[in-house]
Design a protein around this nucleic acid. Structure first.
Lengths: 226, 226
DNA sequence: CTTGTTGTTGATCATGCGATCAATAAGGAA
DNA sequence: TTCCTTATTGATCGCATGATCAACAACAAG
């Protein structure tokens, strides 16, 4: 049997300044590396591509090490899902806060969610809906993240009612409804991106009808970047 | 090694009339059995539970036999998906044909699709969207079946425009949009069935806005069976 | 320098998957 | 009856998964 022990040759070849350790790492560092790798894999190949060996290979460590940092793979998948999705929620939510009126906020919300730049996240949502059937931890995260989204939308709708811009009796249900519609349309775009022109416009019109806003008030007419 | 050859004892114990063969079966019969078993598995546990061994076990044959009837498992999955979904399309489409006006037809369409009695089929749709990423045959079937659905909806919308009940410039896009919304809301119900009251009503209102129908004309008010 | 903690490895186990194929036997044809 | 087609079996291969664990070595503390 040939000696396959790694000498420490391939490590520690760095400039003198920061001296990044290539050998042993802090648990926090390693955990971050693993999370980052898993996140990339999820976005590129889907949640089900998150396997011990897959993640380990991307980080460049043994598969056992990845297992060492989580109780089990299901938990890792659930955690990564929550990370990715929560980041999106926060980002979009932050975008809305800058706008003055609920009408503008709702318009921006729809426009942002339909701009096709988040297809990878949509794919993760869809996969999570299915995977949650057999991964209880993931299912819990899915429900939690859906609630978070709903809260954001409901806030906008309620503000609109108060401002007299919207007219609907049940902000909570309407928020769920808007989310469902957006998710469905995005999921559709996952498989069939063509065939539908003016997705934004039609959706805006639909939401106007649901929210009781004037026809055309949600626009998607002006500020498009094309 | 104990003799494990099956004597023909457990076969052919039937009344004299139809004489169902338990031993060897016609290729058509076997294929039907396998398809039926796979369909049940898909509806109960999802498309990804369709495996050679799983299906074989349910039929009561060797796994090799299942493989014998299809070129590969991907094709089997795709075929079963198409079977299940096409049946639903036909069923609902048939229901619509009995109604006189496009307005009623559209109302019935929404009502039927949102009545929660087809959650299993919704689950299959959602799973297919993800699985299609790695199963080209399935992806093709998904697109095909989506087209079929879209055609049905578009027909209703166009009829409504002709009848002067609807007012929209692009029946095709609106049809896609309605489908996307319905799918999204159903997928949502897959994980979160609670929280939303009056799903039907809100959707009806949204579609009215999109289609240009009078507010409340799509009802979901009268004929409910509760 | 010595010692002890622990990050890290590499191998291994049990399981499940799709696919393949020689061997068997059932059943219709001659 | 005999023969031949083919439905059917059961075993096997190669591969991937999650999990586990003894052994190793890097690093800090003494």
């Amino acid at each position: 049997m040939i000696n396959n022990k790694k000498t420490t040759l391939d490590c520690c070849v760095m400039s003198s300044t920061i001296q990044k350790r290539t050998g042993r790492k802090t648990p926090a560092e390693r955990a971050a590396e693993i999370a980052e790798a898993a996140k990339e894999i999820a976005l590129e190949q889907g949640l089900s591509a998150i396997t011990l060996r897959n993640v380990a290979a991307r980080v460049g460590v043994a598969s056992g090490l990845v297992a060492h940092y989580q109780p089990n793979v299901d938990a890792l998948v659930a955690g990564i899902f929550a990370t990715i999705v929560a980041a999106e929620t926060d980002e979009v939510s932050g975008l809305l806060d800058r706008l003055p009126t609920p009408l503008e906020r709702l318009g921006m919300l729809l426009e942002t969610l339909m701009d096709n730049s988040r297809i990878d996240v949509t794919a993760i949502w869809v996969e999570a809906w299915t995977l949650g059937r057999r991964n209880e931890a993931l299912a819990a995260c899915v429900r939690e993240q859906m609630d978070a989204w709903q809260e954001v939308v409901q806030g906008v709708v309620e503000a609109g009612i108060v401002a007299g811009e919207f007219e609907t009796f049940d902000a909570s249900s309407v928020a769920w409804q808007i989310l469902g519609m957006v998710d469905g349309l995005n999921a559709q775009a996952l498989v069939r991106w063509d065939g539908v022109s003016d997705r934004g416009t039609h959706l805006a019109r639909a939401v106007e009808g649901m929210v009781g806003a004037a026809r055309g008030s949600l626009g998607s007419s002006g500020r498009a970047q094309t």
